[in-house]
Simulated scan of single mutants.
Amino acid sequence: MSILITGGDGYLGWPAALRIATRTDDRVVLVDNFARREWVEEVGSVSAVPIASIDERIEAAEEVHGITNLSFVEGDLTEKAFVDQLLEVHEPETIIHTAAQPSAPYSQINGERANYTQHNNLQATRNLLWGLEEHDMTDTHFVETTTTGVYGAPEFPIPEGGATMENQGEEDDVPFPAMAGSWYHLTKSHDAANLRLANSQFDIPISDVRTAITYGTEVDETRADPRLKTRFDFDYYFGVVAHRFAAQAVAGYPVTVYGKGEQRKPFIALEDAVEGLAQLATMDPDDRPAEHVVYNQVTRAISIVEMGNTIADVANEYDLDVEVEHFENPRDEDETHKMEIENDRYADLIGGQSTTFEEGITDVFESLTDYADRIEAREDRFLPGVLEPDEE
């Protein structure tokens, strides 16, 4: 038996693979085409934390943790022939699908990148789902990291999954409407609909893990050796807001809060995100969902300004003189939106939050202060507008 992890070279996929491999005797097969490394290079940036090659990573996993059940396959999931061969050879009992072009700003640069993002993300998911159907593997537990961004920013509390719709005195449970705010986020809205359809038509057990903004540099498995580190992006296009703020602080810049910054966003520490995927990957077959089950992979909602202030406070403990400054917001958003989001199902899955935001950010500074020169060399990548069409 095997567990397939797509996006296995990525920020979330790699540490999740390490944890899963330590908890099972099954073969854990990583799949990636290294596109994330290429995208970040394309926008003129690097991972702040140097990343080893996949061969070095797997070698280190065996040397440091005694992991012998980890292997890697290079390939493009948008190519159906590759996916068919992958499924035929490895016959996965579980698929953890983390592969995607994950950047909303990148998907918004121009029409070419919007088209690429939608084709890449949707085609990969469809190929995997149809591959399971066509190869008589519909008992495979399909776990995909979609995003809490599919919900948009409604004024009411966000449910963990569907919604109740009422019309003319009648009501029914319906899928949550696609309220995504970018061409990237909309790919995950479409994926969520396709996952639901695959469950309905093919009876594939589906866990739709709607991932919040994930922050952090380490999990227990990556701390032991530099070759095991996961990537840390800090540029405007691929660095999530918490990472970008922390990198700005290390480079001696103020933390740049757009607008009022009172809007709350959903967050989760890398440790808590990895644990959820590990729990789903090693779930007893009898406990797998019979339906399309949604998990809001989030531990709390934090306002941007609170997050910025926390990062500045932690930075100052590292003798970095950091202030929070407000800039004009380049995004069209409600700067005072108070998001509320349900997460009971996910909290039960991981046994509750293990890492606070302050603890996670402290971990970030422990890592980034060793690589200040890599960040400072590309400090022009912090803000938007650095990648123009004539640079393509």
Results as ranks from 00 to 15, higher is better:
V298Q: 12
Q201E: 12
A35D: 10
I51D: 00
I5Y: 11
N199K: 10
D25C: 08
E323C: 01
P102Y: 15
S303P: 04
A178W: 10
T6W: 12
M307S: 04
G161W: 15
T147C: 01
N316D: 04
V64K: 07
E328D: 12
E358V: 05
Q123L: 10
W130D: 13
G162N: 15
A290P: 01
L197I: 14
T355V: 15
D344L: 09
V73N: 06
D32S: 12
L368E: 02
E59V: 10
G131Y: 08
G239R: 10
Q297E: 08
R381K: 14
D319T: 03
P177T: 00
T222D: 03
A114R: 11
V28N: 02
R300F: 12
S303C: 07
G216N: 13
P92E: 02
Y346A: 10
L122D: 00
R227N: 12
L320I: 06
D344P: 12
E388A: 14
G13S: 09
E291V: 09
S103K: 13
N199I: 05
G66M: 03
K265I: 11
I213H: 05
L86G: 03
P15G: 03
A281E: 04
D319S: 08
T299P: 06
L18E: 02
N120C: 06
Q123N: 09
I67D: 07
E62F: 06
S47Y: 09
V46D: 14
E342S: 11
A224L: 11
E359L: 14
